[in-house]
């Protein structure tokens, strides 16, 4: 046992060095944890600083009808409207496909089929948005041009592409919240003689509602903030207007930034306006995220749904 003598040495005293080392490590970890806060503050500070001159235009900026930088006109209203039109439409499509898919996966699907669909849905998130946009440009836009006429690059194409991008989120969060509904509800309903469809409609969906809603709002946030994919398929006319048909080319907030940042004169109102668009985007998406959190809180399946929100983004 003499081998272990070295670890037997036992003194009633502080090992100051090691204790100090542990303290330093804890401090370092704490500082790292603060880094996220710091980054967000920096983002807000710098974005605001750069955009204040444009935001100060007030009404002319937010509700001005014309965006025409070379004429010093910076009204983003048409762009904001289109952004919402594109986002809501995409979401409607994603919901129409995603919610039934989620119900199918959670309630009907045999295991093997689920094992195929689920990874595919998750892989769909992984397709780089630029690649998806390129695909849209080559296939979707051509298809729309050939079958409906017009440019092809239009709201409809944006809808479809964004729907594909938000679909995975809608599916996975909805499925999680459907699964989070206690089994007892379902069994009670079935035991009362309800059919499976009735059970889903009356017992399961109402209880999964907040989770599904959260997935949609979150999807909306993603759709509004999405850049490259949508940029490639919506046309981006020089001077945006409020569209009157879904086959018209349009412009959204994100695409405006990407298309114009490279030739702005640094320090000009144009540059400030682009950063102000960034701020508007930030605020819109933040509101959606906030609403999601509130919608999910304090309802059934809340924790699972939140985890789903967290996990799938």
């Amino acid at each position: 046992m003499s081998d272990s003598e070295c670890i037997r040495t036992f003194k009633f005293k502080f090992r100051r060095m090691e204790l100090r080392k542990e303290k330093i490590i804890e401090k370092l970890l704490f500082v790292s944890a603060l880094s996220s806060i710091l980054i967000v503050f920096f983002i807000i500070a710098f974005m605001l600083k750069e955009s204040i001159p444009a935001l100060a235009l007030g009404w002319d900026f937010f509700f001005g009808m014309t965006w025409h930088p070379s004429h010093e006109q910076f009204g983003i209203f048409p762009i904001v409207v289109t952004t919402f039109v594109v986002g809501i439409g995409a979401l409607a499509i994603a919901a129409a496909i995603g919610i039934p898919t989620a119900i199918f996966l959670a309630e009907f699907s045999p295991r093997w089929l689920r094992n195929i669909i689920k990874p595919c849905v998750e892989m769909l998130v992984g397709i780089p948005s630029i690649v998806l946009g390129f695909f849209g440009l080559m296939v979707l836009v051509v298809f729309i041009r050939d079958s409906f006429g017009g440019y092809g690059e239009c709201i409809l194409a944006g809808w479809i592409i964004l729907a594909i991008m938000t679909l995975p989120h809608v599916i996975s969060i909805s499925e999680d919240s459907i699964r989070a509904v206690p089994k007892g509800y379902k069994e009670a309903s079935l035991a009362l003689g309800a059919t499976q469809l009735q059970t889903i409609r009356r017992a399961i969906l109402p209880n999964a509602r907040s989770g599904i809603l959260a997935s949609l709002i979150l999807g909306m946030g993603n759709a509004v903030g999405e850049t490259m994919a949508v940029l490639m398929v919506i046309g981006n006319p020089e001077i945006p207007w409020i569209p009157s048909s879904i086959l018209e080319p349009v412009r959204v907030l994100t695409s405006t930034i990407v298309l114009e940042y490279s030739y702005v004169v640094w320090g000009s109102m144009h540059q400030h306006a682009l950063f102000a668009i960034g701020v508007v985007l930030f605020v819109i998406v933040a509101i959606f995220n906030l609403v999601t959190t509130v919608a999910v809180k304090g309802r059934f399946g809340a924790t699972t749904a939140i985890k789903g929100v967290i996990g799938s983004r």
Binding site: I37, I43, G221, G225, T227, V285, T293
Partner: peptide
């Protein structure tokens, strides 16, 4: 704030990267 950061659209992070 971690949630916040996750929610910020990538284009805004791009703009921030550009200016900062």
């Amino acid at each position: 704030f971690v949630e916040c950061l996750a929610g910020i659209p990538s284009i805004v992070i791009g703009l921030f990267g550009l200016i900062f």
